[in-house]
Design a protein around this nucleic acid. Structure first.
Lengths: 245, 245
DNA sequence: ATTACTTATAGTATTTTTTACTTTAAGTTT
DNA sequence: AAACTTAAAGTAAAAAATACTATAAGTAAT
């Protein structure tokens, strides 16, 4: 690190190097949707500090790794999945948030389809488990706070971006979509009107397939059309499923 | 920092201390509104690197200072203002973004009322100046990218939160408010309809005062009612001035 | 097979909101 | 007092959201 000191000096008589003792970490909030409930993937720590406690999957960022790369690397190490929707939501930097030193952590969240997701416990993780966001254990570090922020971010973003589809299987029925949005927004929709609203957006492709193994009239299956969404956005379309207070 | 090493070891044979050589900085994007244009406050650097270049006001975070405190401290040092709306928007962590070492930076933005704002150049700043966001110089570091993200964040948040009022003087006319939103959203509103929409939200208090020194019928002055907004939010009210594509 | 039952899906009518536009009011300047 | 400028209120048409009804298409039991 001999490129330090070449440039500027601190104004407070603090030696320049003293500013370079931060640790930087990423914490990933992985959301899933199972059994009509929004779930989050937690890991049980097999290392100090907070040994045995549940925590968000996260780790320190190596000095030579980009932040965004680090987030997907951590997630991949823990889940084996690549190329999934992943977004930064907030950075936490309280002085005493980490017992091993001054560590600022950058929060990322991702939405995964439960039909092709299988978590794998990595080296310092004892176990992984999906928890309903309505029934969470006490978490290590300030992860309660981080998770809470992730949930509120998700709940507000989901109104203005079609991210909800990321949580469903590739093929889904309109009622499944409705149930997901009802879980996300904590609001009951009218079935025919929800159908109309979604279909009028012209974001779904109707498949030549229907539900299987149901003891009633099977519903048609749909698929989200990402390309169509990108096209519509260029034309000024704004996804919106805001609900009245 | 002898509380390090007490706990866990890296999994990649990287010594634990090597994770603790990050610098952390904050960069502030201060928005103002002058002459019907959205402006941003930039500072001219009087230190290496990028000596003489325009940059966002920002600085390294001391190891014993909370992140959020640091943001307002930097802003206060540069502007003399306290207690203004300030919000984190994104963290930038590319490996080579800073020539003096590995520095991740957390972006904050604030909206200031031009009628009571007077920037003061601090120690390592040669000059400060308001630039229209439509006519910006090339900035130091990756500050172009940070500023661009701040602008897009502002433009999207302004639709769903009544933050626009922060940019206006305490007392303003409805046409001034309209002009501000037109600048922010790049959209022309119909005057009577904009009035109706805003007034129907019940967020403004009409004062017993009118415009002074205008050569036409003076408009009534209004004031944003923060308390009323907090109350309405509890009842489920959602601020929204989305415009059609 | 026929009937009962369940859920999907289409349709309709009412209400509310948005939009586009017109009119009137209230001040200043000549 | 007349002309001018902008504020502010009003109105009618169009569009969207909402609440509700009816029909269709399947499964399961009789």
């Amino acid at each position: 690190m001999n490129k330090m000191n070449k440039y500027f000096l601190s104004e407070n008589n603090v030696p320049f190097q003293d500013y370079f003792n931060f640790g930087l970490s990423v914490d990933c909030v992985v959301f899933g949707y199972v059994g009509e409930e929004i779930k989050v993937l937690l890991v049980q720590r097999d290392a100090e500090p907070f040994l045995g406690n549940w925590a968000l999957p996260g780790d320190l960022v190596p000095l030579d790794e980009d932040l965004a790369d680090s987030a997907s690397n951590v997630l991949q190490n823990l889940t084996g999945l690549e190329n999934i929707f992943m977004e930064q939501f907030y950075t936490f930097g309280a002085v005493d948030r980490h017992p091993a030193g001054r560590v600022a952590t950058v929060g990322y969240y991702s939405l995964v389809k439960s039909d092709n997701y299988h978590p794998i416990a990595s080296s310092w993780v004892k176990e992984t488990e999906w928890f309903s966001i309505k029934d969470l254990p006490k978490l290590a570090f300030d992860h309660d706070q981080i998770l809470e922020k992730a949930v509120s971010t998700l709940k507000s973003r989901v109104k203005y971006r079609p991210v909800g589809f990321e949580l469903l299987p590739t093929k889904f029925t309109l009622l499944e979509l409705q149930a997901l949005y009802e879980a996300l927004l904590d609001y009951k929709f009218d079935k025919p009107n929800f159908r109309k609203k979604i279909l009028s957006m012209d974001l779904l492709v109707q498949l030549d397939e229907v539900q299987a193994n149901v003891s009633h009239r099977p519903a048609k299956l749909f698929q989200f059309d990402e390309m169509r969404y990108i096209e519509l956005r260029k034309e000024g379309f704004a996804f919106d499923i805001t609900v009245k207070g």
